[in-house]
């Protein structure tokens, strides 16, 4: 069941992205920025957490989940240690992904070349 919900919610979020590209004529980069900001804002309103509880990876995997993870990390750390936690918490949940991406990009760039 959780797989079906993840499929439907994750697919629907991507379909919204496609509409933004094809109908609203957004550049892909602008669309991604809009999603990450939307994820953060919905997280601030306490809504994105509920979407993740409902859809699991269907809400976590799209880039809006990245925005939510930044906001959630900042909030939890602020509640724990105060004002400075807003900043140290920003990478609480996302830091691992960014670090992994940087390490892998470096390693892969060393061994692989772009093909047309």
């Amino acid at each position: 069941m959780d797989y079906l919900i993840a499929f439907l919610v994750g697919g629907a979020i991507c379909a919204i992205g496609q509409i933004l590209i094809d109908v609203a004529k957004m550049q892909p980069a602008h669309m991604l920025v809009l999603f990450v900001v939307a994820g953060a804002v919905l997280s601030g309103l306490g809504l994105y957490e509920r979407l993740i509880d409902f859809a699991g990876a269907g809400a976590l995997v799209p880039v809006s989940g990245f925005g939510h993870s930044i906001a959630r990390g900042a909030l939890l750390e602020a509640e724990r240690i105060g004002f400075l936690g807003l900043f140290t918490g920003a990478f609480e949940f996302t830091g691992m992904g960014v670090a992994v991406a940087v390490i892998l990009a470096t390693v892969i760039a060393l061994v692989a070349n772009p093909k047309a």
Binding site: G11, A15, M31, G65, A105
Partner: peptide, 23 residues
């Protein structure tokens, strides 16, 4: 299209693709 760009896998792709290209 967005089916590959919006998931975090698309985000990772942009970083790795840029690294491969600009090295």
């Amino acid at each position: 299209g967005a089916g590959a760009a919006v998931p975090i896998t698309g985000f990772a792709n942009t970083i790795v693709a840029a690294a491969m290209d600009f090295k």
